[in-house]
Design a protein around this nucleic acid. Structure first.
Length: 583
RNA sequence: CGGGGCGUAGCCUAGUGGCUAAGGCGCCUGCUUUGGGAGCAGGAGAUCGGAGGUUCAAGUCCUCUCGCCCCGACCA
């Protein structure tokens, strides 16, 4: 490709709003262009990188026996109604009506579509195990897109789906994906950590997320350096201390003026925070049998020294979603904000973290401003579901080995879910087993955000001059900078390299050397060749790797094999860095 | 959905009631220049996001509206 013909242009200044370096360089180097909030065009450079990522994914999916296909972005709403997600997912799912008034949705994922198709294709155990995938556009009307390609509304996702006759088969395909994903991210050069995760709207039980650790990440993940336990904070377990006591003391109301927070209460009563119980009030959205939505107050109780984890609370409460409750809503259920506890409450779901359930004689709100009870005890004084709803914190004890864990920020670039039979049952995707028995197909679902992966790579691979993407995903392999005004040498070299199958971006522009060098660093192709009068007189060109400072003088006659060797070496470095990971 | 910020040429910005909206980068033409974002000369490019209003006069003030960014809520 000739720089003089490239459709996009490089920018000297970052457009306003480019808040991270990776995003800034993607814009400045002309990889992407924003069209609306969370809506981006991939310009030719960006498109080439994305295609390379897709090809890596494609190869690895094919290696697992996946069959590529393509499912439609627009789905009839019926199938989404059958699985219930038409009703349980909020505005993130865009709905519209076609010309005759039929409900339609823009697919934000394809469990419904793939299951509906599989229901027609699969009817025998002999057809499984089976796996299909596609790399396709998704639309999710996220309330707040941000950080360039990290969180967008329209994006490309690889999603694969597995079909098995039993759970054992699913586990095999799941484990195969688990390893395959490490290979994919490894081949792209992206370091990732797999963490146990919340299955969220997907349903199902087992799920992992692949996290690129970065301070700009929006997820908090918990890591035990000692034994390797990792989990998204939304589901992270940790070893809790309990404080049972032999004697359950009598509950007693005490006046505690101005103690609406746990800190104030503990100080006022002169007790440690762990001797108190904290209440969080959320409004949960539920769906009844007629698919009508209704709200119910969800009360989470955790011991005062811990915090509640909303995702855990939502899962335990089996709510579609949670939002912070307003004061009137709390009072309507017989509780008092700031002085609240489930004692005497009504019409609400009470979830009690085991930290509070298994600790005795805690101080809790008396549901009356300025008053608390002391010596409250779960089951004696109030009921509810005992579960783990506490949030893991920096230094919390590992649930596996007991050593302190730490928190990190991460960006989710991929996820894998064991769906089970949730979708096959609701969409009637059944098969006959070897005994002729009808059973629902056991499914798995596996995603990778292609654009987000590129965004993470640009966060990982840049310096103060621009991008430096790994050769496996860079838009071209070689940047040929010509400083020659007259003569056919640059054209000949460009042709020789291209003829040898090397991907070359050839800067044939009339601009000054400074402009060309700066652009070459900004775009950051892995290998840079400079052809100038200075070295051409000696019959040589200069070769430099983007990530290194040293320049090499290479005679023109040897340049093609030299570059081929450099490419092979860079590719080998990536291969060598890939570690095998198994579940 | 709550809070904050910003919309002036492809990009960055100035202009805070008064003459024909200013500058830098980029772009076009010509000449010169060519190993680190060149120089000179000439030129094109803006219904100042949109609508309404106040005023003798609005990019500037007011109202509404649309869009974008950030924080929070939310989210695979």
């Amino acid at each position: 490709m000739r720089m003089s013909k490239v459709f996009s242009r490089t920018l000297r200044q970052a457009p306003a709003g480019a808040d991270s370096k990776g995003y800034e360089y993607l814009l400045r180097a002309g990889f992407i262009k924003q069209l609306g909030a969370g809506i981006f065009t991939s310009l030719p450079f960006g498109f080439r990188s994305l295609k390379k990522i897709e090809d890596i994914i494609r190869e690895e999916m094919n290696a697992l026996g996946g069959q590529e296909m393509s499912m439609p972005v627009v789905n009839p709403a019926d199938i989404w109604k059958e699985t219930g997600r038409f009703y349980t997912i909020d505005k993130e799912l865009s709905r519209f009506k076609d010309r005759v008034g039929r409900d339609m949705v823009l697919a934000m994922t394809h469990e419904e579509a793939v299951t509906a198709i599989a229901a027609q294709e699969i009817d025998s155990y002999k057809q499984m195990p089976s796996m299909v995938y596609h790399i396709q556009t998704k639309w999710r009307d996220d309330p707040r897109p941000r950080a360039g390609l990290i969180r967008v509304r329209e994006f490309t996702m690889k999603d694969s789906y597995t079909f098995d006759q039993d759970h054992e088969g699913l586990e095999k395909q799941y484990a195969a994906h688990y390893s395959s994903y490490f290979k994919i991210f490894g081949r792209c050069g992206l370091p990732v950590t797999a963490v146990g995760s919340d299955s969220g709207m997907m349903g199902g039980k087992v799920a992992h997320e692949y996290m690129y650790l970065s301070p700009i990440g929006e997820d908090s993940i918990v890591i035990c350096d000692h034994c390797g336990y990792t989990a998204n904070r939304q589901v992270a377990k940790f070893a809790k201390d309990y404080y049972p006591e032999d004697e359950l003391k009598a509950m007693e109301e005490v006046e505690t003026p101005g103690t609406a927070t746990i800190e104030d209460l503990a100080a006022f009563l002169d007790i440690p925070k762990r001797k108190t119980a904290k209440a969080v009030f959320m409004m949960g959205t539920y769906t009844n049998e007629d698919n009508e939505e209704y709200e119910k107050l969800v009360v989470g109780i955790v011991r005062g020294d811990l915090d509640a984890e909303e995702a855990k609370l939502q899962n335990t409460a089996e709510a579609n979603s949670l939002r912070t409750a307003q004061e009137e809503e709390i009072r309507a259920c017989g509780m008092e904000p700031g002085y609240g506890s489930p004692i005497g409450s009504r019409n609400c779901v009470v979830i009690v973290d085991d930290s509070a359930a298994k600790s005795a004689n805690l101080a809790a709100g008396a549901n009356k401003p300025g008053y608390h009870y002391i010596n409250t005890n779960f089951e004696r004084d109030y009921g509810g579901i005992a579960a783990d709803i506490a949030s893991a914190y920096e230094g919390a004890a590992c649930p596996e080995c007991g050593k302190p864990m730490h928190l990190s920020r991460g960006i989710e670039v991929g996820n894998i879910f064991q769906l089970g039979t949730r979708y096959s049952e609701s969409l009637n995707c059944y098969f006959q087993d070897i005994n002729g028995k009808r059973k629902p197909v056991v499914m798995g679902s596996y995603g990778i955000g292609v654009g987000r992966l590129l965004a993470c790579l640009t966060e990982e691979y840049h310096d103060d001059k621009g991008l430096m993407l790994p050769i496996s995903v860079a838009p071209y392999q070689v940047h040929l900078v010509s400083l020659i005004k007259k003569g056919e040498e640059p054209e000949e070299l460009y042709k020789a390299l291209t003829d040898a199958g090397i991907e070359v971006l050839y800067d044939d522009r009339k601009d000054s050397p400074g402009v060309k060098f700066t652009d070459a660093e900004l775009i950051g192709l892995p290998i840079q060749i400079t052809m100038g009068k200075r070295t051409l007189e000696k019959g040589a060109v200069e070769v430099k790797l983007r990530k290194e400072e040293e320049k090499e003088l290479v005679p023109l006659g040897e340049i093609v094999p030299y570059i081929q060797k450099s490419i092979a070496k860079l590719e080998q470095e990536i291969k060598d860095s890939i570690t095998e990971e198994t579940l």
